[in-house]
Simulated assay, not measured.
Amino acid sequence: MQTPVLETKPKTDWETLAEEVLAGKKLTKEEALSILQAPDTEVLTLLQGAYRIRSYYYGNKVKLNMIINAKSGLCPEDCGYCSQSIVSNAPIEKYPQLSKDVLVDGAAKAKESKAGTYCIVMSGRRPTDKEVDNVVEAVREIKDQHNMKICACLGLITPNQAAKLKEAGVDRFNHNINTSASNHKNITSTHTYDDRINTLNAVKEAGMSPCSGVILGMGESDEEIVDMAYALYEIDADSIPVNFLNAIPGTPLESMKKLGAIKCLKALALFRYINPTKEIRISGGREVNLRHLQPIGLYAANSIFVGDYLTTDGQRTQWDHEMIEDLGFEIEECAFDSEPPVLNRDK
């Protein structure tokens, strides 16, 4: 009896592709899609290629970020993933903006946790001028006491508010695109995808570093994940938080299934191959989606959040420190980059 011959798809040489990225190559959409759809048996070689890029620009350093939820709930937006939105029935703590002193104390705790970036995050569609002024006062005091990198995430801001934040010392402003332009209507109806892009443009015009990322696992296709990675390339976001949906009971997306750890690793590799010079941060939902494979994600990403998130718990900061140490990596406690890495984007 003749033994059947199994046809196998030729394997991609991921390390060669990584070298081409380092030489300035921009992946085609077909190449990008092949990363997400690579056989699971290739995930280690895929991550080896991603690590080649990551190590070229960042070595084995890991940047830590810590969040303070400066205003919780009370949000008129209908984002389906969010426990703080008006359509959520999740039993969360709700409170108005925290005082300046509480925000300053939070920065001290972030520094104790070896976080180089302190993230002040507020719920709501857009901040009032009074809320912005409170953040401005807190930032000035934090800069004076701790000289930390500050990232603000306050919603849809005006150019005038952006200028105030920049003048006060806010280094970075986060406003995630969250999903692809084509999937946006399935996630929220109270603001548009263009509203988010316009805010990021205001951030850049004010001279703040743009931070923008995604939440994966909200029903998007592989093609839409690729679209997100390219959108962030075009935005030229300096920092890209990659969140994985933590389906919170009481939210419209509470029944969504987890992506699975291997798919999450492929997604992290994708964002590294397409945005090679950028800070790629493993963000919300890593504990429940990547689970025991969290450390491997740092072969593609070079940053994580430590501590708790907005309304969900993170793992113990000590565990994150140990995870980084066990990998043979090093926490980058310095708040500021001397020279940001540059890629030839014209090739």
Rank of each mutant, 00 (worst) to 15 (best):
residue 1 M to P: 05
residue 4 P to G: 00
residue 5 V to I: 12
residue 7 E to P: 00
residue 10 P to G: 00
residue 13 D to V: 06
residue 14 W to Q: 03
residue 15 E to M: 15
residue 15 E to L: 15
residue 16 T to G: 09
residue 17 L to P: 09
residue 18 A to Q: 12
residue 22 L to D: 04
residue 27 L to D: 11
residue 30 E to L: 14
residue 41 T to G: 03
residue 42 E to V: 01
residue 44 L to N: 08
residue 45 T to M: 14
residue 48 Q to N: 13
residue 52 R to Q: 02
residue 54 R to V: 01
residue 55 S to A: 05
residue 56 Y to M: 01
residue 62 V to G: 08
residue 63 K to S: 15
residue 65 N to Y: 07
residue 70 A to L: 09
residue 70 A to I: 04
residue 79 C to W: 15
residue 80 G to Q: 13
residue 84 Q to V: 12
residue 95 Y to K: 10
residue 106 G to E: 02
residue 111 K to N: 06
residue 112 E to Y: 07
residue 113 S to I: 08
residue 114 K to S: 15
residue 118 Y to I: 01
residue 119 C to P: 07
residue 129 D to E: 07
residue 133 D to C: 09
residue 137 E to C: 06
residue 138 A to S: 11
residue 142 I to F: 00
residue 142 I to D: 01
residue 152 A to M: 03
residue 154 L to T: 05
residue 154 L to G: 01
residue 155 G to H: 13
residue 159 P to W: 13
residue 164 K to P: 14
residue 165 L to W: 04
residue 177 I to V: 13
residue 180 S to Y: 04
residue 181 A to R: 14
residue 187 I to D: 09
residue 197 I to R: 04
residue 198 N to Y: 07
residue 198 N to I: 02
residue 199 T to H: 05
residue 200 L to W: 03
residue 201 N to K: 14
residue 205 E to M: 08
residue 205 E to H: 09
residue 209 S to G: 09
residue 216 L to E: 06
residue 217 G to D: 05
residue 221 S to K: 12
residue 226 V to K: 08
residue 228 M to W: 06
residue 237 A to D: 08
residue 244 F to D: 05
residue 244 F to H: 06
residue 248 I to L: 07
residue 248 I to P: 00
residue 248 I to A: 04
residue 249 P to Q: 10
residue 251 T to Q: 07
residue 261 A to T: 14
residue 263 K to A: 15
residue 263 K to M: 14
residue 269 A to K: 09
residue 269 A to Q: 11
residue 269 A to P: 00
residue 274 I to M: 06
residue 275 N to V: 02
residue 277 T to S: 08
residue 277 T to C: 10
residue 282 I to L: 03
residue 283 S to V: 13
residue 283 S to N: 10
residue 288 V to G: 05
residue 289 N to Q: 05
residue 290 L to R: 03
residue 303 S to V: 12
residue 304 I to L: 13
residue 308 D to P: 11
residue 311 T to W: 00
residue 312 T to A: 00
residue 317 T to S: 10
residue 319 W to N: 14
residue 324 I to Y: 10
residue 325 E to T: 13
residue 328 G to L: 14
residue 335 A to W: 13
residue 336 F to G: 13
residue 338 S to L: 12
residue 342 V to A: 14
residue 343 L to H: 10
